[in-house]
């Protein structure tokens, strides 16, 4: 009977892929994740990171949540300025500047 698979989030530390590399290598990747995500690393550095991710559950899980965080920030929409407030601010600016408040 095949053994049931477990999600990465609950696999024991001993079972996760760590392909013989050191924590220092993980840290090196960690420091460059933003540059990697933003496409600002040269090809050889990207390839080094991809190889590392293939062999490291920790970093792969981390990158997934890091990437998601960046995407959420980019997609975030703030509450819009109401037309009333927009008009009121314009009037206040022009008043403070000592100009007549006319219709635009």
């Amino acid at each position: 009977m095949p053994r049931p698979t477990r999600s990465k989030a609950v696999r024991s530390p001993r079972a996760h892929r760590h392909a013989g590399h050191s924590k220092a290598q993980c840290l090196k990747i960690f420091r460059r994740l933003s540059l990697y995500l933003d496409g600002e690393l040269p090809d050889n550095a990207c390839e080094e990171i991809r190889k590392h991710l293939h062999g490291c559950d920790n970093c792969e899980v981390f990158l997934a949540s890091f990437k998601r965080t960046v995407v959420l920030c980019r997609k975030y929409q703030a509450k819009p300025l109401s037309p009333t407030a927009k008009g009121a601010i314009r009037a206040a600016v022009l008043k403070a500047a000592g100009r007549r408040v006319g219709l635009s």
Partner: peptide, 16 residues
Amino acid sequence: FLPTDEGELRLQPIAA
């Protein structure tokens, strides 16, 4: 912000 082996494996990916 450094992930620990144990800590990272416990945290869920955010809204995947």
